[in-house]
Structures are given as structure tokens and as C-alpha cells.
């Protein structure tokens, strides 16, 4: 609702600026400003009908039929679910694996040993992030502390750096069920407090498999405008 109002506001404000004593620059010679306005207004009106969507639970047959790695993402604020394929996996010399997961609608998610370090195409994306202490704490599954930083897009081709002081806690063993399979995991929590200027707090949860140390399920913060995503590794 807020975004609908915002976008309508943007369209109205832009119409006010279409007035003369004005010049337009931009090599988009083929797309005139009125047509941009109309296509934007159409999108806004179409979006009105779409209500909040519930998260999807794929059926057992679907899960058993999967032949490639699939990651399920449930955005908490926006609702619904998305399913991503792994398009890249690179392990560097120190054993950290960077993975790129891609959705059918061209949004990317970067995971380093299961920790979210980047997104693309989500809007208010994480351009880059540091997760040194997080990956270390998850590998050791022990309590500890460290720092984290995120470089996050402001939505207008500029970025803001968010820096946090973090505390890691091992909340004990927990059996979880993901994709109809049961996993023995350790529940790790990362609680971070922003250093300056505000002191916002975020809390990320990770369920790390006991044997393989893979993050089977997690709830991770993305950005101040998007909120949290829930991740489920359906097939690794």
C-alpha cells in the first residue's frame, strides 16, 4: 500500500515536471516521457490487485524429482516464495565457497558458505558484504564476537555502508525438517548492533548440519527496506 502510494506520487510529481521551461536529456530517443509515464502507471494499477502471497511448500514428488541444487527463499515482508538454481560455485584457496543462485526472474543471491553476502535484482540490494567472523563462527559452531559490514544500494545508484558489532551464540542442537527430510543441526544465532549513527539491531539465525557443516536453513537480514529472507536448501 505504501509502495503503491509512493509510485503514484512519483507519477503525479513527474507529470508536474513535464511542464515547459523544461528540457529533457537522455538518449532514450525512442521512448518518450509520456509513454514511460503510462507504462509505469499501468504497472502500479496492475500491482493493486495482487494481495500478499503465502509461502509455497513444494510437494514430495516435486522434491524427489529435482536433479540440480535448488534453494527456496521466502521473503518475509513481501510474501510468497522463490526457487533458485545454482549457476556458479567457486571455492577459494582458504576453503570458502562463494555460490551464486539465480531465480527464473533474474534475481541473484550470493552465498559464502551459506551466509548471504550479496543480492542483485531484489531492489535495495546488498552490493557486497563482509562475513569473515560469521563464516568462522558457523564453522566452529561456538560462541564468539566479531564485526560485519554491508554495502547496500539506496535504490538510486548510490550505496550506504552499514557496520555492525556482532555476537554469536550456539543455541544448541535441533532437529529440523527441510524438504521432507530430517536433519540434525546446530542452531546458531548472530545478533548485531549497528555502530553508527543509529543503533538498529538485526538477528540472523542459521541451522548448520552437524556432519557436513552446510547451512541447511537460515533467516538472514537483507537490507533496511527489504527486511529478512528465509532460506531453505531443498537440494544441495
Amino acid at each position: 500500500m505504501m509502495t503503491l502510494t509512493s509510485r503514484l506520487f512519483g507519477v503525479v510529481l513527474l507529470s508536474a515536471l513535464v511542464a515547459g521551461c523544461s528540457s529533457s536529456t537522455g538518449a532514450d530517443a525512442n521512448k518518450s516521457l509520456p509513454s514511460e509515464l503510462f507504462s509505469s502507471a499501468k504497472k502500479v494499477i496492475a500491482a493493486r490487485g495482487v494481495g500478499p502471497v503465502a509461502a509455497v511448500t513444494p510437494s514430495r514428488e516435486v522434491i524427489q524429482g529435482l536433479t540440480e541444487p535448488v534453494l527456496q527463499i521466502d521473503p518475509e515482508l513481501a510474501g510468497g516464495s522463490d526457487f533458485l538454481r545454482r549457476v556458479e560455485s567457486r571455492t577459494d584457496s582458504s576453503g570458502r565457497t562463494n555460490e551464486v543462485w539465480r531465480s527464473s526472474l533474474k534475481a541473484n543471491v550470493f552465498l559464502r558458505n551459506g551466509v548471504l553476502v550479496g543480492t542483485r535484482g531484489v531492489g535495495s540490494d546488498i552490493i557486497s558484504a563482509d562475513a569473515k567472523y560469521t563464516t568462522r563462527a558457523l564453522a566452529a559452531r561456538s560462541n564468539g564476537s566479531g564485526t560485519r559490514s554491508y554495502t547496500i544500494s539506496d535504490g538510486d545508484l548510490t550505496t550506504t555502508k552499514y557496520e555492525f558489532n556482532c555476537r554469536y551464540e550456539n543455541l544448541g542442537a535441533k532437529n529440523i525438517v527441510v524438504a521432507y527430510q530430517s536433519f540434525k543441526t546446530t542452531h546458531m544465532r548472530e545478533t548485531c548492533v549497528q555502530t553508527s549513527p543509529e543503533s538498529n539491531t538485526i538477528a540472523n539465525d542459521y541451522w548448520v548440519e552437524s556432519g557436513t557443516k552446510i547451512v541447511r536453513q537460515s533467516r538472514q537480514w537483507v537490507s533496511p527496506k527489504v527486511g529478512y529472507f528465509q532460506f531453505k536448501l531443498l537440494r544441495k
Binding site: 500500500m1 505504501m2 509502495t3 504497472k43 496492475a46 500491482a47 495482487v50 494481495g51 500478499p52 502471497v53 509455497v56 513444494p58 510437494s59 514428488e61 516435486v62 524429482g65 529435482l66 536433479t67 535448488v70 521473503p75 518475509e76 515482508l77 513481501a78 510474501g79 510468497g80 516464495s81 522463490d82 526457487f83 531465480s103 527464473s104 526472474l105 534475481a107 531484489v122 531492489g123
Partner: peptide, 27 residues
Amino acid sequence: ALCREQSMIRTFGKIALGSMLFGTVAL
């Protein structure tokens, strides 16, 4: 069956990500 189910996942994904892209906020 697999092909059909996988395309179903993609359709789910389209609807879900579509609504996410338009920024509808869940109540």
C-alpha cells in the same frame, strides 16, 4: 511429471517473485 512439476515451481516462482518485485507488503 518432473518437467511439469518443475515448470510449476517456476510458475510459483514467477507469481511470488512478481509480487515481490512490485513490492506488495504482506499484512
